[in-house]
Simulated assay, not measured.
Amino acid sequence: MKNIPLDDVDHVDRAVLPIGTDYPAGHVLDWHEHRRAQFLYGATGVMVVDTADGTWTVPPERAVLIPPATLHRVRMLGVSTRSLYVEPGAVPWWPARCTVVDVPPLLRELLLSAAEFPVDYSVAGREGAVATLLLHEIAARAPLPFHVDIPASDDLAALCRAYLDSPDAGVTNTDWAARTALSERAFTRRFRAETGESPAVWRARARLLAAVPLLRTASVTEVAARLGYSSPAAFTAAFTRAFGLPPSRFGASRTTHRV
């Protein structure tokens, strides 16, 4: 199925509903939720998924598992998606929070094939076997670290979301503490209690996540300068430590596949 709203087919008696959707650049799916679990694969482009408690950046050729009944927003940056909407009872192992995962070649080909199925595909034949195999392949995926947590309190959450929108290497703990009318020590203690990280570590990770969409259209050197790194080498080292791959692997020339 292609470019069909989930609401039009959610009633269909299939544990797995595959839907492919093409989005214009910069499209935002505003806050919404699905009754079903969702496996959202970006065949092209970059997605940023927000929930109340975190932000997940989904590089090209990766996917995000979104739990059922989870309020979320998705920003699409040049994205063509292949989604699976799955009955919760069919996937009791589904994570309770959004999770970014790799999509190896077999899983990618299964997703592309499933997107061509009719809504009432046969569960007894090849199409049903592909749907079953898709769930086995997804269950075998390991989480990737492309996210930051968002604090529960409104004032800290606002600081973090503003920083994600416009990362600034010059921002300090002193700056953030002043905006919350706390001492730097009290602010840092409270931030760590809500996120499990110090504010400085959180900001460093947020800057690296911001690099992922920028790398679609800019060079490593350009992205390093834009995000305030002292050199491309320093940026590359930090990015590789955080994500296990160098930023050069996320350029547009490295992420083009048929969809």
Rank of each mutant, 00 (worst) to 15 (best):
D149A: 08
L159F: 01
I138C: 02
T195K: 04
A131W: 07
I138G: 01
V148C: 00
T174W: 09
R161Q: 10
E127H: 09
R189N: 13
D165H: 14
P151D: 00
V148T: 00
D149T: 06
D175H: 15
R203W: 10
R126T: 08
A157L: 04
R190V: 09
L164M: 15
Y163P: 00
D168E: 06
A193Q: 13
A177L: 08
R189P: 08
A124E: 14
V123H: 12
P151G: 02
A162I: 04
V130P: 07
V130N: 08
R179E: 15
G128E: 03
D165T: 12
G196I: 02
F187H: 06
L144G: 05
T172N: 04
N173F: 01
R126F: 13
G170N: 11
E197S: 15
D175F: 10
A124T: 15
G125P: 05
L164W: 06
A193M: 10
F146H: 09
A162H: 10
L133V: 13
A140T: 07
A177Q: 12
R141T: 13
A124G: 10
N173W: 02
E194F: 05
Y163L: 05
E127T: 04
S183N: 02
W176R: 11
A152C: 09
D154Y: 11
A177H: 11
P145V: 07
W176H: 08
A129G: 05
R126G: 02
A169I: 11
D175M: 11
L134K: 07
E127N: 11
A140Y: 05
S122V: 07
S183D: 09
S198M: 08
R192M: 08
A152D: 09
I150R: 03
V148Y: 00
H147T: 00
D168K: 02
R190W: 12
V171I: 08
V171Q: 02
R161V: 14
L156N: 00
R190N: 15
Y163K: 06
L133G: 09
A169W: 04
A204P: 05
A157N: 10
I150H: 03
A200S: 12
W176P: 04
A169Q: 10
D155Y: 01
A129T: 09
V123N: 09
R190K: 14
N173R: 10
A177D: 09
A162Q: 10
L156G: 04
T180K: 01
